[in-house]
Computed example of a mutant assay.
Amino acid sequence: MSTTPETGTLIEERTDTDHRLVEEGDHERFSHYAPKDKIMAALIEGTPIRALCGKVWVPSRDPSRFPVCPECKEIYESLEE
């Protein structure tokens, strides 16, 4: 008798409500701040990470080609104080 492991897909649904008005695709135009170790792991493993502004994405593009996300920058600068 052989046993095969069950597989499935886990979908994470955000339950918090974000009332900011952000146009569809606006986050795609920026480089985002996230913990450096998580960025490296995401690049190697192809897994999504969450930026300081809340955007979730899989890093794959050269961040120097895009301006820094103003919201990430503001959050980062407030953490330095």
Rank of each mutant, 00 (worst) to 15 (best):
T4F: 10
A51G: 05
I49R: 00
R29P: 14
P63N: 02
G46Q: 11
R29V: 08
H27G: 15
D37P: 05
T4I: 09
R29M: 12
V68N: 04
G25C: 05
I75V: 11
K38I: 05
E71A: 03
T4G: 10
G25F: 02
T7W: 01
W57K: 07
H19V: 06
L21I: 15
R20I: 08
R65T: 15
W57Q: 08
L10Y: 02
E24G: 12
S60Q: 11
G8P: 09
M1S: 13
T17H: 06
R50L: 03
V22S: 13
V68I: 13
A51Q: 01
R20T: 11
R14C: 10
Y33Q: 00
R65Q: 15
L79G: 07
F30C: 00
E77P: 05
H27F: 14
E81A: 10
A34F: 04
E13V: 15
L21N: 11
A51P: 06
V56Q: 04
E77T: 11
S78K: 03
C72S: 09
A51W: 00
V68C: 03
C53F: 07
E77V: 12
I11L: 13
E12F: 12
E71D: 13
P70G: 03
R50M: 12
C53V: 00
V58F: 01
M40H: 09
A41I: 01
Y33I: 03
H32A: 03
R61T: 13
M40I: 13
C53T: 02
S78I: 04
E24F: 14
Y76C: 10
D62R: 01
G25M: 01
E74I: 11
G54S: 02
G46W: 05
L79K: 14
L10P: 01
K55N: 13
R61I: 11
D18R: 03
P70K: 05
H19M: 10
V22L: 15
L52Y: 06
M40Q: 14
Y76P: 04
F66D: 01
D62C: 07
G25H: 01
E80P: 10
D18S: 04
K73F: 06
D26R: 12
L21W: 09
V58G: 02
E23A: 12
D16E: 08
M1I: 14
I11Y: 09
E24P: 15
A42F: 02
M1C: 14
I44Q: 08
T7I: 10
E80L: 14
C69V: 06
K73W: 06
T15E: 10
T9S: 11
A51F: 00
R50G: 07
K38P: 00
F30N: 12
E77C: 11
P59F: 06
D37V: 11
I11T: 15
W57Y: 13
E12N: 09
E74Q: 14
E24M: 15
E77Y: 06
E24L: 15
T4A: 12
A42Y: 05
E13Y: 05
H27I: 07
L52S: 03
T47I: 04
I49E: 00
K73P: 03
H27P: 09
A42K: 08
T15S: 07
E28G: 14
L10F: 10
S78C: 05
R65E: 13
E45Y: 08
K73C: 04
A51T: 03
E71P: 05
A41Q: 03
